[in-house]
Design a protein around this nucleic acid. Sequence first.
DNA 1: GCCCCTAGTGTGACCGGTCACACTTCTGCT
DNA 2: AGCAGAAGTGTGACCGGTCACACTAGGGGC
Lengths: 345, 345
Amino acid sequence: MNVTGHQRRPASIRDVATAAGVSYQTVSRVINDHPSVKAATRERVLAAIDELGFRRSATALALARGRSRAVTVLTADTTHYGYASILQGIEEAARAASHTVGIGVLESAAETAVAAVVQRAADTGGGVIVIAYDPAGVRALNAVPAGLPVVGVVETPAGPPTGDRPWVWTDDREAAYEATRYLLSLGHETVHYVAIPSGARRTGARSAGWREALREAGAPQPRALRGGWSPADGHAAGRRLAADPVVTAILCGNDDLALGVLRALHEAGRSVPGEVSVTGFDDAPHAAHLTPSLTTVRLDFTGLGRSAFALLHGMLEESAQSAPYPVAAPELVVRESSGVAPARD
Amino acid sequence: MNVTGHQRRPASIRDVATAAGVSYQTVSRVINDHPSVKAATRERVLAAIDELGFRRSATALALARGRSRAVTVLTADTTHYGYASILQGIEEAARAASHTVGIGVLESAAETAVAAVVQRAADTGGGVIVIAYDPAGVRALNAVPAGLPVVGVVETPAGPPTGDRPWVWTDDREAAYEATRYLLSLGHETVHYVAIPSGARRTGARSAGWREALREAGAPQPRALRGGWSPADGHAAGRRLAADPVVTAILCGNDDLALGVLRALHEAGRSVPGEVSVTGFDDAPHAAHLTPSLTTVRLDFTGLGRSAFALLHGMLEESAQSAPYPVAAPELVVRESSGVAPARD
DNA sequence: GCCCCTAGTGTGACCGGTCACACTTCTGCT
DNA sequence: AGCAGAAGTGTGACCGGTCACACTAGGGGC
């Protein structure tokens, strides 16, 4: 193999062809494993390929073939555990289908910035997967131009997906409902909720599940606290809750929020789970190793990612009508941070 | 604008040209803001573009122009906070330079799998950034074929980078050195270390900094405990350390390990920082909100990512000799998990 | 009136692959 | 011997843009 790393432009199939003394089409046949090439010829071509260090250009391939075996993932933040896991699931599935994964971060809430990122994804060709749990993601999903294949990863939707813009989700509404019922079953009079920023203008799915469980049980329905995503947001919300002696059970929209809440309760001298029970969402790796370890809801993020890709893949290539990838149902994981309600005065 | 989402193939510049009654070259001039186009003509072309919903194909552009304004990031895990932050930094800088960011995950340790991922990145064209803190990443970096522009994000290297394969790093060696000195200054006889899996066959940079500080102070040099990346790994290592009454100070290779160590110490009934001081690495968002809050070293991951891209960008386009992006020096952040050594018997 | 220069536009080839089809051989059958 | 069909190979056009260059029309200097 040619190791002289000289900057000269990479070899094309025509270079290989001349080197091997055949036509470019024959080279094309060899690299595509076409059967009708004489063994001897194939040998010569392969030798030339090796000699020249030829690699088939994915760009030219995409142009010639029509479509591009590429997926772009749009997300507000790569750092968030859930998002990162979804991304990883997508990449895994995409790799298996020999697709390429691109990424666009929607960091700022600026409308124009989101539009620009979406544009770039659209230009790249292939399909788009939007992680649309938060406002930025939802905006991005809406900004995707019609006709471009796209799949949204969303909170449990209220209705069925609109025709050309399919969704994928785990039933976090049901999960929030279950988690709330669990806390109520421990004797808590009601459950307070620290919310993640919801994507929809209306209240999010987790929030809805929580509220439904309270209503069903005839429990008081406090207002949800608008949190963010981070431990710092949880800490801020936790301080408000810690100051209220009525609060004995807190459901948090994710584990990071719960972490901050735990900290705030600690600072206020309220013991967990003795005086207050805390529950998270997601089952991030650290949840099990906090002190106290965190009761939370395990979500199958990577499965969700794989599923999103499978769906998109089916849209891109009608041949590959890949069956919907199975996503594990959310599962309540009970640990130390939740317990029976303290005796009421 | 054409909203009939019919599946028909997207409009090309020739379609626009016929619609506007000009040549394809004129369309090309318009979309490239070439000055010498009559205003009236430009108007007509722009109208046609809007009418047909034309979008310039990034694929064709890349093919025609030669190079591709694309970067692929190779990482072992998108979930890890440090890695995710680096990725985010890269994406930010790439977007500013209107480059596209691809991602490849090196999950499994299988040699062949790594090679395959690298291959795919190479075929995509453009440059590659490899996050090479761990064995999989280092393998990937080595597997990158010669001639392909690549930048590695690495631990503090022992020597200068080899010619064609530049590196980028924060001085985590120095940071580990400082953190260790800090712990020693609190009166601890020595400091134990829970290591992240090092990339190099030799011991990693953080480990080296730690050891150097101990040697300099004439302190006993215990063996480093081989941890992993996760809280569970930290927990396992922490249990071993908790059982040893001699241990009063623990430096951890990252915050997740520290989290697990904290938990293990708690389970063993050893108080932090009363009996044992614990220090992390990275300053992940949760470090400040743990109980006790975690003393750690803040690393500028996003800056590192931006810097890696800037370097690669300079390699791809000799014009853009972008000055090396500034990366903030590591900074020790003292919180509750560290304190003066307990009085010795 | 001639020429030169510039503004504005069009033509052909090319990037690196693929596809559709035409062209040679060789083999096997009548 | 003659011919059909398959195996093996080559030619031209195309994907959607760009580049280099040629061309036309209009304005100013002589």
